[in-house]
Structure formats: structure tokens, C-alpha cells
Amino acid sequence: MTTESTTRSAQHDVAATARTAPPEAAPRSPDGRQVRQALRRGAKHVLLILGVLTTLYPVLWMVVSSLRPDGQIFGNPSLLLTTLHVENYTYGWTALGRPFSAYLLNSALVVIGSIIGNLVSCSMAAYAFARLRFRFQRPAFAYMLITIMLPVHVVIVPQYILWAQAGLVNSFLPLIVPKLLATDAFFIFLMVQFIRGLPRELDEAARIDGAGHGRIFFLIILPLMKPALATTAIFTFIWTWNDFFSQLIYLTDPQLYTVPIALRSFIDAQSTSSFGGMFAMSVVTIVPLVLAFALGQKYLVQGIATTGLK
């Protein structure tokens, strides 16, 4: 990808150079031109680095502040650390009703359940839509596309009533079961597009060899769609980890608090004391996101670029 674009812009630069210095014009020396180009490039980098620093400044300030004693946090825009006040972390870890690890564990359970649910149910549905012929296929596919656009607010009230009547509010099931039932239609669509891009000859060859749809799915399609599965997994991770709306609605028992809900109760409980502890735990909650980003960047970028996922 990068190579492609580099070649392209290299050509582009050549074209640009050809224009800025047509042969009949300018007795300028090639050296002067090179210097000017280098200066331009340098200026661009300076601009971009300033842009990056401005953009990331709030996050960096949060990380630095999480290592400062309370008295030094406010009124201090600097990013230089004079002390390493790790007490914020030990204090924040135990400041709420339960150790912070309990909330991390709860979030991890919801995240893992959601990822497994989305991978299994969406890939199965996508295989059916992309490769099988069946009754009501067109209306079913159209309905699936409609549910992508449907705001969650339309279904959240009846879904809540459903879970409340089943006595399952204050459990992780309302958060995980919908993923097991492929309600994240966006991922079905992503995978359908991916499977459609795979050569049908592979399926047909397997079918001639006597393989049924189960074998074709598990042995041929699934191994080939690893990139789509990775994209689904990483986006499910980020969305579920950050999800506040449904976790706020379904989890009111402090035993079940996930990371976003726990952080929120931090604000209520600590409105004036120990900002350091709150910053420290905020940093703890974004570390997994940054790690996921670092590990899965390729799939993340591909996912955004091809489908507009956030």
C-alpha cells in the first residue's frame, strides 16, 4: 500500500517539478531548486509535527497528570514530570467499592463474549447471503441492510423491556446475546462483500469433491476471510470497550460494573478529591485501546477505508 502510494507520489513529484521548471524558463540552478524543495518539505514536517503535538497534547497531559500529586495537576500545562507519583495508581485502583481489576475483568468478559458472538454469527450469516440461494433471500438481505442504518434508540426500549421481563437486567446477557444473534449487521455486510470477492471456483471445486456447505464454509471460506474477521474483531473490541449507553442501561449492580460505568462512578464519588487517582484509572482504561490499535492497525485502517467504520 505504502509502496504504491510512494511510487505514485514520486511520479507526481516528477510531474510537479516538470511544471515548476519548464526547460525554456528560469536560468535557476538545479541546486537552488533542490534547496527550495527541501525547505518546503521541512516546513511541511514542522507543520505536521506541530499538528500532531496539538492533537495529542490533551492525552499526553492526562498521562503526565496521572503521575503528579494532586496539588501539581491544575494550573500546570507543562508536560515535564518532576516527580513520579505512582501513588495515584495504587490509590485509584482501590478508590471505588471494588478493586479496579474487577471492572477490567467485567469489561473483558463482555468484550470477549461480543467478539466471539460477532465472529461466529456474522460470518455464518454472511456465508449464506454471499454463497447460498434460498427463499426470501432478497427481502432478508434488504432487511439486513436496513438494520445497519437503524438507530439503536428505536429498539433499545422494547429490548430493555424484554430483558427486564426475563429478569436478566443486571447480567451480561443483554450485552452479549445480541452479538451471538448477529444484530451487528454492519459486520455481516462487511463479510458479505469480502466473500463475494473470493473466487467461486474454490467452492465449486470443493463441491465436486463432495464437500457440503459446512465443509466449504469451515475449510475454504473461513480461512480465507481472516482479514475481514480481524477487522470485525478489532472494531467489536473498541466499540464494546468504549460502549457506555447500553452498559449504563443494563448494568446498575456495582458488582457488574464495566470500565466505562466504573469510571463514571469515579466522577460522582470523587468530585473534588483525588483527581490524580481518576486520571490514573482513565489512563488504565485507554491502555487496552492503544494496544489493540498498535497490534491491529492494518486491519483497522483497512476497515475504516473500505467501509467507513469509526
Binding site: 490533551p58 492525552v59 470497550w241 468504549n242 466505562p260 469510571l263 463514571r264 482513565s282 482504561t285 485501546l289
Partner: peptide
């Protein structure tokens, strides 16, 4: 990546 999180809202 971080913008939708509670941590950033707290920040």
C-alpha cells in the same frame, strides 16, 4: 480511537 470513551469525557 479514544474519543468515544468515558476516559476522554472525564479528561
Amino acid at each position: 480511537l479514544l474519543g468515544a470513551s468515558v476516559a476522554i469525557a472525564v479528561l
